[in-house]
Design a binder for these strands. Structure first.
Lengths: 345, 345
DNA sequence: CTGTTAGCGCATTCAA
DNA sequence: TTGAATGCGCTAACAG
């Protein structure tokens, strides 16, 4: 394995100095055309490749960004990461992945570890419901590197965010269920310290109220985003004396659990109970009883988050500024909520 | 934003030298306990954090590994990456993600770009059917860093691989279809320059022959792993004068396309045609007509690939050696191939 | 046990 | 336009 040539090796071969080589390779204007061309040609011959580590150490820019998500094998997060990578790779950035598994301490360790690695920015979907109270996070805020939240965010000064309009997504979903004739709609929520769940809850509530239906706090339940949890809680909901005739779930997984439970009890979907999920996970489309859901355009979300990062890194001279991007949700009506008589609504 | 303290800052404060600080921080034995403790305490007070870039430049180890996949928003690859990340993070490595979108030239650029970034190893599932012929790849082979192929591999000297036993997975799938009574089984294949597809084809063929059925090359079709392609080709298959009564697909996506087409023609699954896919994508399980498929334990595959990397990085003094890990596939029988009379086979 | 020195590979300032 | 010198932050060899 031959040692990698450095700019010194090529300088020596050409009887010039490393500085000149560096300039030639970096399109520095202060260099003669013949020299530049000679250097570039020789570099190619010698199989020279820039050592980005050295460059990074010198410049203070690693050209790496860290992305922190609960887990990557989840279509939503994977798609966001896809968008981020696609946007950043052409600009010369690499994407470093960290998973939190929803462990609060692991998230903080991820942050520190990325900071040590000198990432130029961090894009994350948080796992700590009150992340702003953690020491490790405060530490991150003090740095001058861009920090961007996507999807699961908290409102924190100087931290830009990219989300969809969760309130609207929830409002439209609930309105859709009401249009289908539902009168008593349950809401499978999640920890509302996370703004996305809070906003979905608020959108749901507002739609109920705006339509003159009775808002019943007992029909709102906070559970983890798991199929089994959806099942478990739906069993309870169905056992109520006055059961729901519609379910708006803040997660496709709990919606799926709900559907399984409803079917196992011999009830019809959507006739007896209509169901709407959230996120447009692939399985919601492929199922025989396809699930109505809200699309969050995750790839786009990733792209935008990456763009916000690029803007912030560019305008870094200016004062820190916060940018909030809110994408439009798209309600995708499928069989789980489409009652026959209303097929075209 | 206060400037980050370096070991010099803490050395100055303590009236000692940076070398001593470095030693204290790195658990070097040649240092007195009081000094070490004082340094550690002071470092903590000053909010010191190690700059891994400098360490990397000095040591030649970035503690980053590159992972190259066609795309990340695909459950199989996302799960492999999950496994890799989980295995490597505790060892102090970060995972850098690159996507090829199945573009051969992009894959080569990804390799170069990761090499520039001084990654300590590359784990990849290839997009170039004959990657060994590409200049950029030969270049990578010359380096002394570990290279590991997972899933989509090529047999190349010195390159370790982690795959499942595709031959066996295919053989068992086909045998299963035969057990269900299928006599004329089609195979939706893919570019067989990729060993995984070649082996699946060979396993299929062997099962046909071993069972004394007629092997008909016309029933083997190479297509891209897309739902639409599965649909298109199934339409052709069904139009044959002597159509198939079973389909073994090397991809869940083409299997899904096949199922959609079969159903749209009013045929029954599995009664008229039984279908088996490959990969155990989540949707195969959630569908009403769940799809029989072969599980590749992707998270495990990622973990193993990471372990192979760690072994190679550790034994780097020795000669380069090639390791081949072959995981067991697991046939998961579901409705798409389970004929009623054979429910328990 | 601790200090001194040097260098990883590069880009940039100051001279010439 | 080019060369010489310096430092990014850290570690390791060599002294002492």
């Amino acid at each position: 394995m031959p040692k990698k040539p450095t700019i010194y090796d090529i300088a020596e071969r050409l009887n010039i100095t490393a500085a000149t080589v560096s300039r030639a390779l970096n399109n520095n204007p202060k260099i003669s055309k013949p020299t530049r061309e000679l250097v570039i040609k020789t570099a190619a011959e010698m199989g020279y490749e820039q050592n980005k580590l050295a460059q990074a150490l010198k410049s203070g820019k690693s050209h790496n960004v860290g992305v922190i998500v609960p887990r990557i094998d989840n279509n939503f997060f994977a798609s966001v990461i896809r968008g981020i990578e696609e946007e950043l790779y052409p600009k010369g950035y690499h994407v470093i992945i960290c998973q939190t598994h929803n462990k609060e301490d692991l998230e903080i360790r991820n942050i520190n570890s990325l900071l040590n690695a000198q990432v130029d920015g961090i894009l994350m979907s948080i796992s700590n419901a009150k992340i702003e109270e953690k020491e490790g996070f405060k530490n991150l805020l003090k740095k001058s590197i861009p920090l961007i939240f996507f999807d699961r965010k908290r409102d924190i000064q100087d931290v830009s965010t990219v989300t969809i309009d969760d309130f609207r997504g929830a409002y439209e979903s609930t309105q859709h269920l009401i249009n289908q004739g539902c009168k008593r709609i349950a809401h499978l929520s999640n920890d509302r310290l996370f703004l996305i769940y809070k906003n979905r809850y608020l959108g749901y509530k507002q739609a109920i109220i705006d339509n003159g239906l009775e808002f019943d706090e007992n029909l709102v339940i906070e559970i983890e985003s798991k199929i089994s949890e959806g099942k478990r809680i739906t069993k309870e909901l169905l056992a109520l004396e006055n059961p729901a005739d519609g379910i708006f779930s803040s997660s496709d997984f709990t919606a799926l659990g709900a559907i399984e439970e409803i079917k196992s009890q011999g009830l019809k979907i959507p006739e007896n109970i209509a169901v709407v999920g959230f996120s447009n996970e692939p399985f919601t489309k492929f199922m025989e009883l396809s699930i109505t859901t809200v699309d969050q355009s995750p790839v786009e979300m990733g792209r935008i988050a990456a763009q916000v990062f690029l803007e912030e890194i560019t305008n870094s001279k200016k004062v820190k500024s916060k940018k909030e991007v809110i994408l439009s949700p798209e309600l995708i009506v499928r069989k789980s909520s489409m009652k026959l008589e209303n097929k075209f609504i």
